[in-house]
């Protein structure tokens, strides 16, 4: 690796993944958080609509997708660990498993979206589904961006692992974990709460 120098994570300017990525993470969480608060406020004025709409969602799909993302996050953490110990083979293997988790998430989400469109539960169906489509699609875009970032990192890891910086790899991993964090807020509130 080009830079294996020990990073002082306790320094406020060097959180794992880099300060820039963490600023992005907080801004993303804040954006989704504000939308979820507005969703909860709307649910207060139309509790029946929100409850009936929530019951139209497939909780099993949401729970399975949570398992896919959490497992993918576990693989990503392992991949970073093996990169730091310069075990590039295992790092690559876990990166591929991470990507598989992301692709499975997108595949199941596509099935879920297809079911909803077939049933006529589109973005304009009611307020609840407006939030459902907006928030989950926005999250899906993040997952797709995360997959692209991991593919780029994976290419370097396969071709020139010695040039890959731990900081860059940690930043990519932090972005991927951010998708987990966002989903861990969306799943309980959209699929389970109302």
């Amino acid at each position: 690796m080009a830079d294996t120098a020990k990073i002082d994570y306790k320094n406020i300017f060097y959180p794992p993944g880099g300060i820039l990525l963490w600023i992005i993470i907080y801004l993303e969480l804040l954006t989704f958080g504000i939308a979820l608060v507005f969703m909860a406020l709307n649910a207060r004025t139309e509790p029946e609509v929100f409850h009936e709409s929530r019951m139209l969602l497939n909780t099993a799909y949401g729970a399975i997708n949570t398992v896919f993302l959490l497992s993918s996050g576990w693989c990503m953490a392992q991949s970073v660990h093996f990169l730091k110990t310069e075990n590039f083979g295992k790092s690559k293997l876990f990166l591929k498993l991470t990507l598989l988790g992301g692709i499975l998430f997108l595949a199941l989400k596509s099935v879920e979206y297809y079911d909803k469109v077939e049933a006529g539960l589109t973005v304009g169906y009611n307020v609840f589904f407006g939030y459902y489509w907006t928030l989950t699609l926005f999250h899906v875009i993040h997952v797709i961006v995360g997959i692209v970032i991991l593919l780029v990192l994976g290419r370097t890891l396969s071709k020139k692992p010695e040039t890959l910086k731990v900081e860059d790899y940690e930043s990519g991993a932090a972005f991927w974990h951010m998708c987990d964090l966002i989903w861990l807020l969306l799943f309980p509130i959209i699929y389970l709460l109302f």
């Binding site: 994570y9 306790k10 959180p15 794992p16 993944g17 996050g73 953490a77 991993a173 974990h177 987990d180």
Partner: peptide
Amino acid sequence: FMELKRAN
């Protein structure tokens, strides 16, 4: 997973 426990 993000190792925030090691951060400031």
